[in-house]
Amino acid sequence: MAWRLYSLEPLRTEALAGLGEGPPHLQDSGGSYPFHPLEEPWEAKGAPPVPWPEPLYFVDGRERAEALISDGRRLVLLGCVAAGAVAFAEGGMRLLEPRVRRVGVGLWEPLGLGELVYEPLPLEGGGEPLSPMALQEGLAKARALLEEDLAKGLEGGLLIVDGPVRLRRQGPVLGYIKTHWARYLPEDKEALIPTLRPGERTPMFRVRRGGQELASWYLRLPLPPEGVRPPESGLLRVETPLSPEAKGLADLSLSLFPALASHPVKDPRAPQNLLPVGSLERELSRRMGSRDLVGRILARYLGGG
């Protein structure tokens, strides 16, 4: 039997899988590592402002589930993933050409519907019916792959990625984590966090993940009006592969992230959703095409009407 539309509202399945940001284990998997500080003493640190290195890349991606389709035996998630980069150079931010792909999670061969072509993205498990949750994860993975692929093409400069640092790269890279699912600090050290003022950070500490050693620190972003929200709401955890340059990058991060913090009036995800990244996300969703239009095309080709 041919593919038929099962649901145009896979949002409910998204809800199953967690937040729009993706499932927590992709976001930040901490674990109970032994705490190992990389700087002494354990106290709030500031740093004099330094100019931003050029070029400075921000990479981010987006995913959008567009429909669940079925051939009567199994479900396939049609979705769209996009990744893009913003480069800071010569005093201005500029968008680099983003990449957009339509994928069918669980598909074995491409599915062309009018001007939309969904590339196959088979998942482990062979022909077994997949749960909506697994499909959603597959889409998130496709997005992460696209981001990584894009990031590999960026030469030189400093790369800043949304989420933990996974890719390996010649130049320096910073990852920033906006939501904090895992605990990295013992309770007595955690006491420092609420006392951080905007633009200050904790000393660096070591994080091990998947055979990679990283230096990490928390920093406070400004969140106006100051003093209204709990200090933790402006918190960002930043990490970078452990290297002699880590200290310099940690100090640089104080010139970088607070300046790019978004304002709560303009962005509900302020301050952690950085300004250039917010713009990038808007651009990516624009490039993914109108949700309504895609829905109509899908309904025309697969709606069975």
């Binding site: 913003v86 800071f88 005093g91 201005g92 931010m93 500029r94 968008l95 300046a259 790019l260 303009k266 300004l275 250039p276 917010g278 713009s279 990038l280 808007r282 651009e283 624009r286």
Partner: peptide, 17 residues
């Protein structure tokens, strides 16, 4: 695509594309 007039300040400062 920018919804706030003040976004122009951010653009001038090189904070958003």
């Amino acid at each position: 695509g920018e919804s706030y007039d003040t976004d122009t300040f951010l653009a001038v400062e090189g904070k958003i594309p």
